[in-house]
């Protein structure tokens, strides 16, 4: 079943992600894909994440497909102009890649090639319209395509953005531009997320809550101080502290599993997107503890 069909079937969906490596040695990455195969419903492949140059997302999506897992092609507007983006989208489509996540992308200053010229010919909302248009057989300039694409397109949203309202205005623009599903920035406060969901439910789009495992109280404080749009509540920091150094990671896994279970049991959203960031091997453990395996 395609990712789209699974989402539309009403099943509580789980997606995870693979980060392509810098360099041609893909043994570890393949290991992660095999580990998650049959467990998650789709795998995001990041696009030069944090503006650090790595293997391109499309090539890795193809490998994910060859392992019988549904890939979600992440596409940012940082490195390609509208010609490059559309051409890559057509290419992805003929390779059998059906899911695309449209993003603007971290600035080159965040990455490892700070002297690069950032492109940003278009941005996330406009990229969503482009995908919509390719699906309808026309390119961005209005030319007819010989064969339309059939993408299932999604976008990202930050439910805890501060200030929130401009972010929500943008969310609505993304919905109108054709986004069918959203994967959120990491969330840790389920009650606050419920507020966001009661707003988001007004729109007929699927929402997957972002889950990032907390490895330690230190990591949680770091996130609060440095990462935009994520807030770890004090209770969780205390819980990690109380667990002590040895048990912190295990507690972090429990918190993630507990949140996922609650999101599912209370039918708060349509699924979760687990961003393991180097701990791909822990994803099955979280899923097991959440009662999903």
């Amino acid at each position: 079943m395609s990712f789209k069909d699974i989402l539309n079937s009403g099943k509580f969906v789980v997606t995870a992600e693979v980060g392509p490596p810098k360099g041609t040695d893909i043994k570890e990455m393949i290991h992660h894909i095999e580990l998650l195969k049959g467990k998650v419903d789709a795998l995001n492949v990041t696009d030069n994440q944090s503006a650090v140059m790595r293997i391109c997302s499309m090539a890795v999506c193809k490998i994910v497909l060859e392992h019988d897992v549904e890939p979600i092609l992440q596409m940012t507007c940082r490195d390609r102009n509208r010609i490059g983006l559309q051409s890559d989208l057509l290419g992805a489509n003929i390779l059998g890649i059906r899911n695309v996540l449209c993003m603007t992308g971290d600035h080159v200053l965040a990455g490892d090639h700070k002297q690069a010229k950032p492109v940003y010919d278009i941005e996330s909302v406009q990229l969503l319209s482009v995908v919509n248009s390719l699906n309808n057989g026309k390119d961005m300039a209005g030319n007819d395509l010989k064969g339309a694409t059939d993408f299932f397109q999604g976008a990202v949203v930050t439910p805890e953005a501060n200030p929130l309202e401009p972010q929500l205005i943008k969310f609505e623009k993304k919905v109108r531009a054709g986004a069918k599903f959203f994967q959120t920035q990491a969330i840790y406060d389920i009650n606050k997320f419920k507020e966001f969901m009661s707003y988001a439910r007004k729109f007929s789009v699927k929402i997957l809550a972002g889950i990032v495992v907390l490895k330690s109280a230190g990591m949680a404080s770091f996130i609060n101080n440095n990462v935009p749009g994520i807030r770890v509540p004090q209770e969780l920091i205390d819980e990690l502290k109380a667990a002590g150094k040895e048990k912190a990671l295990d507690t972090g896994l429990n918190i993630a599993a507990r949140h996922i279970r609650q999101l599912k049991d209370e039918n708060i959203c349509d699924g979760v997107h687990i961003m393991a960031i180097g701990m791909e091997d822990k994803v099955p453990i979280i899923m097991e503890r959440a009662g999903l395996l």
């Binding site: 600035h107 200053l109 940003y120 941005e123 909302v125 501060n162 401009p166 972010q167 943008k170």
Partner: peptide, 29 residues
């Protein structure tokens, strides 16, 4: 906006400040 975004703040906006530099306010805010 360092990314020239035309439709609202990116995910990097932190407490109203720009992802690229905490010294500047997010254009979209």
């Amino acid at each position: 906006c360092p990314k020239g975004i035309l439709n609202g703040p990116c995910g990097g906006c932190k407490d109203g400040k720009c992802e690229v530099s905490p010294d500047i306010k997010c254009a979209w805010v």
